[in-house]
């Protein structure tokens, strides 16, 4: 080829490949968030119902561990790809603008680098709080209902859950839209329906999840 070809090194994993990894793992995590939210609604049906559901989830160990390993792999791949792309994006503009005006970027897209790590921290805390129990004062491996009531009675803990859920809602809205774009599935025909469905879905996820700590604090679940 001609001398115009650059000798610059190309990365092993191309940017679109990494974005596709994020999109595909994002679908898995989207599915988990939705199912987890639906399952949690049983909190409103009393201790027997939600404790029974928890026992049911743990009743087939291979299925439980298969799901856990899949989710862990999805989270790690998602975070690793995001971290790699973030490093490259930072390096792509070593000298920044003194004055940069945003014309199109909304709050959800501009906060992705913040909402992602906030959700990661939340997931770690959430596992210590309600799965392993080491961050819980009176943890029981079988009584999920009491764990939730006791855990959410702390205003600071509940406040953090509410904040994390808002971050999750923002992240899922832009992430959901982005995954269609990244996988090349965004077309003019479906653009508006996709955004509408995502807006409704993210609102439902945030409202339902936020309702649990608020219901405990308000004394509706005790």
């Amino acid at each position: 080829m001609s001398a115009i070809q650059s000798t610059a090194e190309r990365p092993v994993f191309g940017s679109i490949t990494l974005k596709a990894v994020m999109a595909l793992t994002g679908i898995v995590l989207y599915g988990f968030v939705f199912v987890h939210m639906v399952g949690n609604i049983q909190l409103y049906q009393g201790p027997e119902k939600i404790n029974g559901y928890a026992a049911f989830l743990k009743s087939v160990p291979p299925l439980l561990w298969g799901t856990r390993i899949t989710l862990l792999a999805a989270v790690l791949l998602h975070a690793l790809a995001a971290f790699t792309l973030w490093r490259r994006n930072l390096a792509a503009r070593p000298v920044g603008y003194a004055h940069q005006s945003f014309q199109a970027a909304g709050i959800t897209s501009r906060t992705m680098y913040w909402t992602g790590p906030v959700i990661a921290l939340f997931v770690i805390y959430h596992l210590l709080h309600f799965t392993l129990g080491s961050a819980h004062s009176q943890f029981s491996h079988t009584d999920v209902y009491t764990n939730v009531v006791v855990g959410f009675s702390n205003v600071w803990v509940s406040g953090f859950y509410v904040l994390a859920m808002l971050a999750l809602g923002f992240h899922l809205f832009h992430g959901g839209f982005s995954l269609f774009q990244t996988l090349g599935l965004r077309t003019p025909k479906y653009e508006k329906p996709i955004k509408l469905v995502l807006a409704v879905l993210c609102t439902v996820i945030v409202v339902v999840n936020v309702s649990f700590p608020i219901a405990v604090l308000a004394g509706l679940v005790k």
Binding site: A8, R10, S15, L85, N89, Q103, A104, S109, F177, Q181
Partner: peptide, 29 residues
């Protein structure tokens, strides 16, 4: 795309700033 990555350009995060700035109105599509 390989050359684009090798040149050191960043990756798209679907913010739409490019579309808004484009003087020829190229779309994100």
């Amino acid at each position: 795309v390989e050359q684009m990555d090798a040149e050191g350009f960043g990756g798209c995060t679907n913010m739409g700033e490019c579309e808004a700035a484009c003087p020829k109105e190229i779309k994100l599509e």
